[in-house]
């Protein structure tokens, strides 16, 4: 299995690992978002969905798989970032882009840490009820209780804009990394990447904004 170690150790193998794990995480985000949008439908429907997930025997396995994907995505990317930092020990006095970088690609490391911090709080608050007054309330109630606080709602919206920026580069970049670059469909993937980032960030952020500032949590 030396070849597998060589693969994970190589610059191309690292980016393929990060890109592939990232695409799987994108695949997780879509059903998660669709489920959350049930908050807009009503309390009973959302709570029924939450009970269905909690009672499903496959849920713990899926959670472990998700954790493994996050760890792979994060640790390999961080390892690559460390090597990149070492690859230029003396930096430039003046740096001027000629047009390759985007705001999303420039901020990948920052948005990554923003999303990481957000995820830790997010799981602690909503899954384990950290900071909640009760520990046995229905999930709909817990969401609304948290989002009544404008600081929490604002912080959530901000972190989700960070996720959107991360996706605006990451989605398209993962396809390039997997060797998918062709004049017939690369322009489509680029547009799809931006639309995906805007849709995911916008729809997720709409929940705390609606709950806190538009009277959803009344």
């Amino acid at each position: 299995m030396r070849w597998l170690c060589d693969f994970l150790n190589s610059s191309i193998g690292k980016k393929i690992s990060v890109g592939l794990a990232g695409l799987f995480l994108c695949g997780f985000v879509v059903p998660h978002l669709l489920g959350n949008l049930l908050l807009f439908v009503g309390m009973a429907q959302f709570n029924a969905y939450a009970h269905f997930l909690q009672a499903n025997p496959l849920t713990p396995a899926a959670e472990l798989g998700l954790l493994a994907l996050f760890l792979l995505h994060g640790t390999v990317a961080l390892w690559a970032r460390w090597q990149n930092w070492r690859a230029r020990p003396v930096g430039y006095d003046t740096v001027a882009s000629k047009g390759g970088r985007t705001i999303g690609s420039r901020t990948m490391t920052y948005t990554a840490f923003l999303v990481l911090a957000f995820l830790i709080l997010h799981v602690a608050m909503f899954k384990y009820g950290w900071g909640s007054a009760f520990h046995d309330e229905e999930l709909f109630q817990r969401v609304m209780d948290f989002f009544r606080n404008p600081w929490i709602a604002g912080g959530y919206a901000l972190a989700l804009i960070g996720l959107g920026l991360h996706l605006s580069h990451g989605f398209e970049s993962a396809f390039q990394t997997l060797g998918v670059n062709h004049p017939k469909y690369t322009p489509f993937i680029k547009v799809l990447g931006v639309l995906f980032a805007v849709a995911v960030a916008g729809a997720f952020a709409a929940i705390p904004i609606w709950a806190c500032f538009l009277g959803g949590a009344k």
């Binding site: 980016k15 090597q83 000629k98 047009g99 390759g100 970088r101 390039q176 990394t177």
Partner: peptide, 11 residues
């Protein structure tokens, strides 16, 4: 370093 698809090289 490792490529992160920034595109500055092409530019």
């Amino acid at each position: 370093g490792n490529c992160s698809n920034e595109g500055e090289c092409e530019a």
